[in-house]
Design a protein around this nucleic acid. Structure first.
Lengths: 121, 121
DNA sequence: AGAATTCTACTACATATGTCGAAGATACCA
DNA sequence: TGGTATCTTCGACATATGTAGTAGAATTCT
């Protein structure tokens, strides 16, 4: 389930708290993003189509709920980036993470800790 | 410089060896991908537009050359994924990498080694 | 009840992306 | 030198994506 950029915005707002109305989602969008109400409705419809979001009506208003978890969305974003740019190989990615200073010293330390924890169990 | 999926295919073929003609690129595409010659030309034109690829004519034939390095392309793919799906925070990504078994035991070991090397210097 | 507000369902439209085909210019081979 | 293969340039078309307007139904306020 690959989300587009705009869809990510909607999903993030929805993951924060749900179920939620389109109106609520609108208020939760990041500052830079100011979409028309109908734009949000359109995005939601498309997400419902894709089964990434569920919709139930309460009165004349729709309540939306994520069907796609953030974890899965992330996994999908990650693996598709990995396939695309690193031919699916985590090896080069790891190399890249280290070489490109994508990790701060602190993160590296934490990473080491976690890795050690894991190898310990 | 964000590349689309199709553009990645072309770039990968071009990175392998360059300069290269459209025809050569065609033969280097992965097995699954069998685009018409003109499709490849179209992709190349668009990449030239974007300054990701340079073009020089030799006779009536164009020679193409990457202007965008694989490193930069990867960096861009990575950071845009990171921004999109992990709000730009490597912390959650690292967590994710470990939790989701995205790394094999061997990779984790290597990672530890590298991290240690680094912290040592 | 009538007006104002808010929703939904549709439609629309621009730009991006994936994929070519056609037509004319070039190059190469018998 | 004529034919055949190959290139290039343009244009085209479908689907995806971003963004929103309109019209009519439902709800709410006064």
């Amino acid at each position: 389930m690959k989300l587009t950029q705009a869809e990510w915005q909607i999903m993030k707002a929805l993951w924060k708290k749900h179920p939620a109305t389109a109106r609520q989602i609108m208020t939760r969008l990041p500052n830079g993003v100011s979409w028309a109400y109908t734009t949000i409705k359109t995005m939601l419809s498309r997400l419902v189509e894709k089964n990434a979001v569920g919709e139930q009506k309460r009165g004349n208003t729709s309540l939306y709920e994520p069907l796609l978890s953030q974890r899965k969305a992330r996994l999908s974003a990650f693996t598709s980036m990995l396939d695309q740019a690193f031919d699916g190989a985590t090896g080069p990615l790891v190399h890249f993470l280290l070489e490109e200073q994508q990790l701060t010293a602190r993160q590296k330390r934490e990473l080491i800790e976690k890795l050690n924890e894991e190898s310990g169990k």
